[in-house]
Structures are given as structure tokens and as C-alpha cells.
């Protein structure tokens, strides 16, 4: 299995749409066997998704992502685990231990259960 993670230094890139680098990890039964970095064309969902297809990732772990690239990725049959934050190694290990997504690694305000409603005082 190939896992893609959009990275910014040693942390998960905050926004997939603007991410420039993807770490691809090959995972076999005995753990991670290979890691490679790929350049992503930030700002172009078409080219970003094309890179995902070309690299053959089955799962993408990323930070915040907007609807258009998210739909394209899921449409390409890639499992998307979005709104993840934190150190890349810790996130990768959590995924391998099947502990993703959990509250510890979710971005603030993106918890599964409680979603804050925008009361709209300043919006319309």
C-alpha cells in the first residue's frame, strides 16, 4: 500500500490546496519499506490529483482541503483522510496503528462529533 502525506517541513501541510510537497510511504506487512518525496503543483487541483494518480497512492493524509480537490481525489478512488495536523512521523505511525483519524490529530474545529455552527451575526 502507498500512503501519501502532504508535508511542510516535518509537519503536515496545513492546506492541501496550497501544498507543494508530498511524502509517499510504501507500507508492507512489516512496516514502512520506502519513503520518497514528490513535488506537487500548488494551486492546480488537476495537476495535484494527476500526481497522486501517477504515484499510485491508495490513501492521502492531508490538512485542510477544499471541496473541489477533495471530490476529485475521492472520485479517483483514493481514500482521503483530511484535516489532520501534527508531526509527519507521529501521524504516519498513528495511521499504521490504525489510530487515524482521532481527536489528537484533528485540526481544531474539525472534530467528528461537535461542529460549531456559524451563528451568522456578521454574515448576512
Amino acid at each position: 500500500m502507498r500512503i501519501g502525506i502532504t508535508v511542510w517541513g516535518n509537519i503536515i501541510s496545513p492546506v492541501f490546496d496550497a501544498a507543494r510537497t508530498m511524502l509517499v510511504a510504501d507500507v508492507h506487512t512489516d512496516g514502512i519499506v520506502n519513503k520518497e518525496k514528490y513535488w506537487l503543483h500548488a494551486g492546480s487541483p488537476v495537476l495535484q490529483v494527476e500526481t497522486l494518480r501517477r504515484t499510485g497512492v491508495n490513501v492521502l493524509i492531508c490538512g485542510a482541503i477544499s471541496e473541489v480537490p477533495a471530490n476529485m481525489i475521492e472520485g479517483a478512488g483514493i481514500r482521503l483522510i483530511p484535516f489532520i495536523r501534527g508531526n509527519v512521523e507521529e501521524v504516519l505511525n498513528a495511521y499504521l496503528r490504525q489510530q487515524l483519524p482521532t481527536a489528537d490529530f484533528m485540526m481544531p474545529g474539525c472534530g467528528n462529533r461537535r461542529r460549531r455552527r456559524r451563528r451568522g451575526r456578521f454574515r448576512q
Binding site: 492546506v15 496550497a18 507543494r20 500548488a42 481544531p108
Partner: peptide, 15 residues
């Protein structure tokens, strides 16, 4: 207490 890029997830953060 969180990093600003985790809360204010902007296209500007990284670049």
C-alpha cells in the same frame, strides 16, 4: 495554544 496554521488554515501559511 494551537499553532496558528492549524486554526487559520490559509493558502498563505506555507508559502
Amino acid at each position: 495554544g494551537k499553532h496558528c496554521w492549524e486554526v487559520f488554515r490559509s493558502n498563505m501559511c506555507e508559502s
